[in-house]
Simulated scan of single mutants.
Amino acid sequence: MPPVFRFAPSPNGFLHLGHACSALLNFDRARETGGRLLLRIEDIDATRCRPEFETAIYDDLAWLEIAWETPVRRQSEHLGDYRAALEKLAALGLVYPAFESRAEIARLVAAREADGPWPRDPDGAPLYPGDANSLSAGQRKRLMESGAPYALRLDMAAACRRVAGLTWHELGEGPGGEHGIVPARPESWGDVILARKETPTSYHLSVVVDDALQGVTEVVRGQDLFHATAVHRLLQALLGLPAPAYWHHVLIRDEAGHKLSKSSHSTGLRELRAAGASPASIRRLVGLG
């Protein structure tokens, strides 16, 4: 079977050079290996994703001379797949609702840090500090029936007790030079969010479900997602899903050394195209010339 790659942008802004780098690397890897390239639109965030950004993704990729298979998978059309995965985790006793708002979580963290530094995940965000996992089933039911907002979190300690010795195959390079067989440490992320009351899935959950359903065999993406792979490997193991190989590439950064964002107009593909850039010059700008 030929290898399967995917480029999976979110239509919450226009593409920039960082996206171009990932898309071109996936396209090149597919051509070099005789594989397939899929395009997936990760549009689960209904408040930020917009049709004009999705249209612009197709336009920019076509201008870069990237070809992909159709039909394109749009996450908003497959919420049932993520719901089924969430229900499977819940049946294992690994999911619980947490009712604290972001402001309440910030106050809890501040209170914890009165006694010393509170642990943070690899991205620098504080681990969930609440105690919602200790609520009784009756308390949870009453809160949910009252209409209170909530997030469905993974009981990380219980999940890690079910699987041990997780690793992944790194074909690229991690931020610290990691390559080959890399140990996965999902516990460093704490009780991650799997869904919210108003959003039936999260990035972590949907990405592993999509990769499995689409038969993706190699995930090519930026180093900013290197450590998140530990969470993805844990969910794959819990759900009985296959694990692709991973290729994390160096990020394209701005002149100040910051990771590019969709508000970085100086590196936006639309702006560069308007200034006379060509697909070949974009390749050179991202180091693929």
Rank of each mutant, 00 (worst) to 15 (best):
A277T: 04
V208T: 04
S101D: 08
R273H: 06
I41R: 00
A243L: 02
A195G: 03
S261D: 08
L38H: 01
R36S: 14
H227G: 09
A275Y: 00
D191M: 08
W68R: 03
G257R: 10
R253W: 02
L64M: 07
T201V: 07
E100N: 13
S266G: 10
G124A: 10
S263N: 12
F14D: 05
E145F: 02
P126R: 06
P11I: 00
T217I: 13
W118R: 10
I252F: 05
Y58T: 02
P244D: 07
D210F: 08
A245L: 06
N26P: 00
E178H: 08
H169G: 07
W189P: 07
A228C: 15
Y246S: 04
H16A: 11
A158D: 04
S261V: 03
Y150A: 07
L89I: 09
A277Q: 06
H258N: 15
G35S: 01
S206G: 13
L166K: 06
L205K: 04
L234M: 14
R162V: 05
R283A: 03
G180L: 11
L24A: 05
L94M: 12
R40F: 10
D115A: 15
C49L: 04
G147M: 06
G190P: 12
W189I: 02
A245F: 00
G80F: 01
H232F: 04
G124P: 13
P117E: 07
A137S: 15
T229V: 13
L17A: 12
R196V: 03
P175A: 09
V163M: 11
A110K: 14
D45K: 04
T70Y: 08
F14L: 15
R284M: 07
E54M: 07
L205P: 08
G116P: 14
G172W: 00
V72Q: 00
L135A: 02
V182A: 08
R140H: 05
V109E: 08
P126Q: 10
G130H: 00
Y246A: 01
L288S: 09
D60Q: 12
A275S: 14
F99W: 04
L86H: 01
R36C: 14
A85E: 03
L79I: 05
T217R: 05
R161D: 15
V182F: 00
F99S: 12
A125W: 10
A110S: 15
G13E: 00
A277D: 09
F53V: 11
V231E: 02
Q214E: 15
